[in-house]
Design a protein around this nucleic acid. Sequence first.
DNA 1: TTAGTTGCAAAAGGTTTGCAACCCA
DNA 2: TGGGTTGCAAACCTTTTGCAACTAA
Lengths: 147, 147
Amino acid sequence: MHKIISQVREKLRSREYKLTPQRQQILEVLLENKDKHLSAEDVYNLVKQKAPDVGIATVYRTLELFLEFDIIHSVNFGDGRKRYEYGEDNEGHHHHHAICVQCGKIIEINEDLLEELEKQVARDYEFDIMDHELKIYGHCQDCRGKK
Amino acid sequence: MHKIISQVREKLRSREYKLTPQRQQILEVLLENKDKHLSAEDVYNLVKQKAPDVGIATVYRTLELFLEFDIIHSVNFGDGRKRYEYGEDNEGHHHHHAICVQCGKIIEINEDLLEELEKQVARDYEFDIMDHELKIYGHCQDCRGKK
DNA sequence: TTAGTTGCAAAAGGTTTGCAACCCA
DNA sequence: TGGGTTGCAAACCTTTTGCAACTAA
């Protein structure tokens, strides 16, 4: 964790940006909730517990900054707000999500069986693929019975 | 087209809803732009050309209604607005999109090579799949050179 | 000093809602 | 008549922006 924070500090410094206390708090929240798909407001509320004075604007600006540096990436589940996760989006580290339409639970799936389809798309449409995103909608284990 | 309109009229009538002139105009716009991924505002502007008096609220309410009846479905490309397409979302009629990160072009892809992955998810997570949505990001034919 | 950074409040988008008027079975 | 429907405007929610104050190399 300290190591990651130092790395981020260097990454930012390389382009004349600072890892301010606020930004560090936001980074820590993201690191502590790696698999939670936090919305900007979630991040804001969590950071407020440590540093009550941060403003929501700073959270948005910091998330934007982290996105630009590929420190985090964002996902959109169609519920009207973006969600953020620590970690890059590329390098074969694709993210798949199973979303329960009943309780809203989001299950992260790491398999990568899209190679075949990607090849086909790249060939048929002359499309250079950078990333993909797969969402599966249905009922999770807990909600199967409640349909 | 007339046939579809009649079918929708019946579908709505079965639950005591009416296919009003406004709703029919909206439906027609959606039918005439099947593959265009229109936003609510796009629909609004197109409908306005035929019927200048419709309000944006009616458009939203109608889209909501059509969604409820599975007459249309919505997609979210993460650009801050929902997009709507005529047609159901299920029955193997899954939609895949290739989105060009440079020019924003959206290419519809109809292949369905996710069977294997779906089976795996259903088994490993005890998840009952209803639908899935795949987005592929990259550079389209026209933008390949401009990178 | 000076450029980056912050919090606040206002503004901006997209979407939803309250309400009186309206339409039609 | 009465329930569904409409347009308008206001409200809502998430996100962005203008600005003056602040911070640190």
